[in-house]
């Protein structure tokens, strides 16, 4: 026993054991079960093997493609909004402009949305984007001279509302990632550049952005996953999983509808497996393309 506990060869494994056990119990096993279930028809206490039937149904399912399109569209647009804007804000905070106290307050207030619950935020946003002409967004619309908009009834206006939630919630978090990355860049680089006469903008493009690459790769990777796995925002905004014409339906929303609301867990597992494959394909190709897996050049 004593020998076993003090063995140098075993110790490392012992230390990573807690991680491996949680990974196995909460990730690998459920994943394997999902694969198995995606080839079954699951009813109470009985599961029948049906081969790839769930996948053929999925392939022909218009609603699934619509959900996938919605998720992809949302993911791409969040990338377009949630990388440049927080990057610019972080650069602004990191620069010498403005008083430190105001910037600290700004940082804190940008971060607060990340601490609130999506459930509460979703309800508040639903009220902001309500149909009545007294709702906040319709008052804003009126101020700019166009009549009350039925925000959550139209496809594009509904998407605007979803992106507004994403922007409100994640700008601060991404800004913090970028800011942390920027503060790790040695100031010597900037000094040398300014001696050479480089403008602020050129310093940003040629020093800040290249040095931030690991942070940007990280933020893009989690944003791809976050965008494709979005569910709760839409669920809260539309007060449930049924939005008009499925305009707010995401892949995870469809999985939830099929598995939980309609009790077709086999089919829902197939949806989950397909989502996993898509997310992994996008992220692994991106990581390979950005050179993350390459060994650092010596």
């Amino acid at each position: 026993m004593k020998q076993l506990l003090y063995s140098k060869r075993l110790a490392p494994y012992l230390f990573i054991l807690p991680f491996l056990v949680t990974l196995a119990v909460f990730w690998v096993v459920p994943l394997g079960r999902s694969f198995v279930m995606s080839t079954q028809e699951v009813l109470y206490g009985q599961a029948t093997f049906i081969g790839l039937d769930n996948y053929t149904r999925l392939w022909q399912d218009r609603i699934f493609w619509q959900a996938l399109f919605n998720s992809l569209r949302y993911m791409v647009l969040t990338l377009v909004l949630l990388i440049p804007i927080p990057l610019a804000l972080a650069a602004l905070i990191n620069s010498g402009i403005g008083s430190a106290r105001i910037k600290a307050f700004f940082k804190a207030s940008m971060f607060v949305p990340a601490l609130t619950s999506v459930v509460v935020a979703g309800i508040v946003f639903r009220l902001i984007f309500a149909e009545s002409d007294t709702a906040i967004m319709n008052q804003v619309a009126e101020f700019f001279g166009f009549g009350p908009v039925r925000w959550l009834r139209g496809d594009v206006t509904g998407l605007v509302a979803l992106l507004a939630i994403a922007l409100w919630r994640w700008t601060g978090v991404n800004m913090m990632y970028f800011l942390a990355g920027m503060q790790a860049i040695p100031t010597e680089y900037y000094e040398a550049a300014s001696i050479d006469g480089a403008s602020r903008f050129r310093q940003f493009v040629h020093i800040t952005v290249p040095n931030l690459r690991p942070t940007i790769v990280y933020v893009v990777t989690i944003s791809v996953y976050g965008g494709l796995a979005m569910f709760l925002e839409s669920f809260m905004l539309y007060a449930g999983n049924n939005s008009p014409n499925n305009q707010g339906l995401t892949v995870v929303g469809y999985l939830y509808r099929k598995g939980i609301e309609e009790n077709d867990l086999g089919f829902a597992s197939a949806v989950g497996v397909v989502l996993l494959v898509i997310v992994m394909t996008i992220n692994i190709s991106y990581l390979v393309a950005s050179g993350t897996f390459k060994k650092e050049a010596a």
Partner: peptide, 19 residues
């Protein structure tokens, strides 16, 4: 019936009465 009801409430009735 739950699937039929759900599809009508989400898509069909919206398509006909709203769109």
């Amino acid at each position: 019936w739950p699937t039929v009801d759900d599809t009508f409430r989400t898509v069909t009735l919206n398509e006909i009465y709203e769109n």
